[in-house]
Simulated scan of single mutants.
Amino acid sequence: MGVLRQLAEYFYIKKRDPNAPHTKWMQYMHGINRISLFMFLVGLIIIILKLFVFRKH
Rank of each mutant, 00 (worst) to 15 (best):
M1W: 10
G2E: 05
G2Y: 02
V3W: 00
V3R: 03
V3K: 02
V3H: 00
L4T: 08
R5S: 12
R5D: 15
R5E: 15
R5M: 07
Q6N: 00
Q6A: 05
L7G: 03
L7A: 04
L7V: 10
A8Y: 03
A8Q: 14
E9S: 06
E9I: 13
E9G: 05
E9K: 14
Y10T: 12
F11I: 07
Y12A: 11
Y12W: 03
I13L: 15
I13V: 15
K14A: 15
K14E: 15
K15S: 13
K15P: 00
R16Y: 02
R16F: 01
R16D: 12
D17P: 06
D17I: 05
D17K: 09
P18L: 01
P18C: 00
P18Q: 00
N19T: 14
N19M: 13
N19L: 14
N19F: 09
A20M: 01
H22M: 07
H22R: 13
H22S: 14
T23L: 00
K24Y: 05
K24I: 00
M26K: 13
M26A: 07
M26Y: 00
Q27T: 14
Q27F: 05
Y28L: 14
Y28A: 14
Y28W: 08
Y28E: 09
M29G: 08
M29T: 09
H30Y: 12
H30T: 04
H30W: 13
G31T: 05
I32H: 05
I32E: 00
N33D: 06
R34F: 15
R34T: 08
I35D: 09
S36G: 06
L37A: 09
F38H: 03
M39K: 04
F40D: 02
F40S: 03
L41H: 06
L41E: 08
V42K: 08
V42I: 15
G43T: 10
G43N: 12
G43D: 06
G43V: 05
G43C: 06
G43F: 04
G43I: 05
I45T: 14
I47A: 12
I47K: 08
I48R: 11
I48Y: 07
L49T: 06
L49H: 06
K50P: 02
K50Y: 04
L51T: 07
L51R: 12
L51W: 11
F52E: 06
F52S: 07
F52T: 06
F52C: 07
V53Y: 09
V53P: 00
V53A: 07
V53F: 10
V53D: 01
F54S: 04
R55Y: 07
R55A: 12
R55E: 11
K56S: 02
H57C: 03
H57T: 03
H57P: 11
H57M: 04
